[in-house]
């Protein structure tokens, strides 16, 4: 990654190019590559998808940052958890994606969070029965992701069952995920990130501990 095009003049004074975290070197190719891994992650829940190493604003996983660069634009309201909402992150996303940062998680198409969120997953947009696609996609930064261990996943995208391990989730999560699964066809979809690794958990996935 390199610094963004220096000839582009920021429109708002809040943006500073000094120290701004870079975007994609080749936005067309890299966006496609990141998207395909996100597509595989959500269509084969529990598989580990590795993204290239990359710079990211402090406290933000390279996988989470690259998902934002690939998927967000002026049409996608983003909610950022207070703990992650640094000036560096907000400036970089405003500059590279032009996305709106919103205060109400219920209006967010995407949300970037850590597992220690206040409240339930129902804080986010759930979609309606007529339009279940209008729900928030959560990018959740966790401690680590493993291809085996204590959780057993089943549902579409999984041939039988799949074992996964996710560290850094507090004890509320299995219950919150079970509730989310029960709300089908409504509910949020989750992209877990750990460093450069990505794992998908759509609302259709059943989690057993």
């Amino acid at each position: 990654m390199t610094t963004p095009n220096q000839t582009r003049t920021p429109k708002t004074p809040a943006l500073s190019l000094t120290g701004l975290c870079g975007g994609f070197d080749d936005p067309v190719q890299q966006s496609q590559q990141v998207f395909r891994r996100a597509l595989t992650a959500l269509s084969e829940p529990g598989t580990l998808q590795t993204l290239p190493a990359a710079d990211a604003p402090t406290g933000i996983h390279p996988a989470a940052y690259q998902l934002c660069l690939a998927l967000l634009d002026a049409e996608t309201p983003l909610w950022i958890a207070p703990a992650l909402k640094s000036e560096a992150l907000v400036s970089a996303l405003r500059f590279h994606c032009g996305c709106r940062i919103v205060d109400d998680p219920g209006r967010a198409e995407f949300a970037l969070i850590s597992p220690d969120i206040d409240g339930e997953l129902t804080r986010f947009a759930q979609g309606s029965h007529e339009y279940p696609d209008r729900s928030t996609t959560l990018i959740v930064q966790v401690g680590s992701l493993e291809a085996t261990a204590d959780w057993t996943l089943s549902g579409p995208g999984i041939d039988g069952t799949r074992k996964v391990g996710i560290t850094g989730l507090d004890p509320r999560w299995p219950g919150m995920l079970a509730d989310n699964h029960r709300r089908f066809p409504c509910g949020v979809d989750i992209l877990f990130t750990a460093g450069s690794v990505l794992m998908g958990l759509p609302r259709t996935t059943r989690v057993e501990i």
Binding site: P27, V28, Q29, S31, Q32, F35, A38, L39, L42, S43, A70, L71, L72, D73, E75, T76, E109, P132, D133, S135, T137, P156, G157, F184, P185, D189, P202, R203, T204
Partner: peptide
């Protein structure tokens, strides 16, 4: 031409729809 013809904004929009489409199998995403 753009890579694969479509402009990047249209691709991003369709990509977001595809992610929702796999999350709700068989549901028609507009």
């Amino acid at each position: 031409y753009n890579f694969a013809y479509l402009d990047e904004q249209t691709k991003r929009m369709i990509r977001r729809c595809l992610l929702k489409a796999v999350a709700v199998p068989g549901y028609q995403v507009p």
